[in-house]
């Protein structure tokens, strides 16, 4: 049997230096100077609904939009690829024939609906689309009081986006809180940039 060696761990006795540090409250002074520095520094709060709003980068995946080409024709050809690609099954597309030139081909969507309450913004629909008709835009204020309002129809999706496609984004801009009949909106003023470090 080998004897168990007991190792005696000696606790460091506080040296004279530690004691001196304690008597002049060095640690406290360090801590206090840090908090004082923060107290005087600028806050990083975004005053979101009232005065400022974050505009996301173009890569941001927010609510869907349906695009048109330069001549204003609907790009969607109702191929239903997005429906197939969608993991949550939240897109409904019903095709119809149309040769009035509303769309880029003679097939357009009669119904194009997405249920944002089920969508998890993966962006597969946008990848699947052969004509880049469906895109995930930059709107992120999607809360609503009734569940039906979360279903976006084709008419709503075809409207131009609140932030234009070529806007750079990734910045905080001035904004205004607006209460209207249809709900509360935060309207950004895209050209009034707010600096924040």
């Amino acid at each position: 049997m080998n004897e168990k060696k007991v190792k005696i761990v000696k606790r460091d006795t506080p040296g004279a230096l530690d004691l001196a540090k304690k008597t002049v409250f060095l640690d406290f002074i360090k801590g206090l100077s840090i908090t004082l520095r923060y107290n005087l520094s600028r806050s990083i709060t975004i005053r979101y609904p009232d005065e400022e709003k974050w505009i996301p980068y173009p890569r941001f995946r927010g609510a869907h939009t349906l695009n048109r080409d330069e001549e204003g024709r609907e790009l969607c050809v109702a191929c239903e690829l997005c429906v197939k690609a969608c993991p949550t099954n939240c897109i409904t597309v019903v095709p119809m024939e149309d040769d009035t030139g509303k769309g880029i081909a003679d097939r357009v969507a009669k119904v194009w609906e997405v249920d944002l309450a089920r969508c998890f913004f993966c962006g597969y629909c946008e990848d699947a689309c052969p004509t880049t008709a469906v895109r995930l835009g930059r709107d992120y204020e999607l809360a609503c009081f009734e569940l039906d309002k979360a279903r976006k129809t084709k008419e709503e999706l075809l409207k131009p986006q609140s932030v234009p496609e070529d806007f750079e984004g990734g910045i905080i801009v001035q904004a205004k809180l607006q209460r209207t009949k249809s709900g509360i909106k935060v309207k950004p003023n895209l050209w009034k940039k707010k600096e924040k470090k």
Binding site: N39, S43, T45
Partner: peptide
């Protein structure tokens, strides 16, 4: 307010 600014927030604002 002091709490807010020390924690790099703004404190009550509305």
């Amino acid at each position: 307010k002091v709490a807010g600014h020390i924690q790099v927030r703004l404190g009550p604002f509305r």
